[in-house]
Amino acid sequence: MLSILKSVWLVFLHLFRRKITIQYPEEKAYLAPRYRGRIVLTRDPDGGERCVACYLCAVACPVDCIALGATEDEHGRRYPEFFRINFSRCINCGFCEEACPTYAIQLIPDVEMAEYQRQNMVYEKKDLLIDGEGKYHGYNFYRVAGLAIGGKDKGEAEKESPPVDPKSLLP
């Protein structure tokens, strides 16, 4: 009986406590830099697309919300012809970011994605692609990959020794 009265009194005292409500549109909650929100496609420091259209993100996606088609430019550099994410399906799990070998696909702390029409939740490549490098600065996949590609031959990548000539007997 006394404990009931005590709990009623304690709850009554909460009337004068500081309120924890965040008045959303005016003030916003802090979202950590690594918060998993909207998905973006980033560019490398030279301004080229990082995405190499390897389909790993589409495979990793548990809700199958990513669709893309691969193509190549004249230098043999792969890039997605189209890249489509259906955000009405996306669950912001971040598996695509983990799967991406080139840091191209990244989740950013932005959650304000309300739309009046459901069709507007489908983001095309032009909506997804940003001009910056996202969370990983100075990384350029084609600079560290051993692939020979427009303007860069084998062995010219960073931290890469020149290719060994198997037909030569020299050390």
Partner: peptide, 10 residues
């Protein structure tokens, strides 16, 4: 309003 205030909400 009162229930919210008692639960530290607005």
């Amino acid at each position: 309003r009162l229930l919210a205030l008692l639960q530290d909400r607005l």
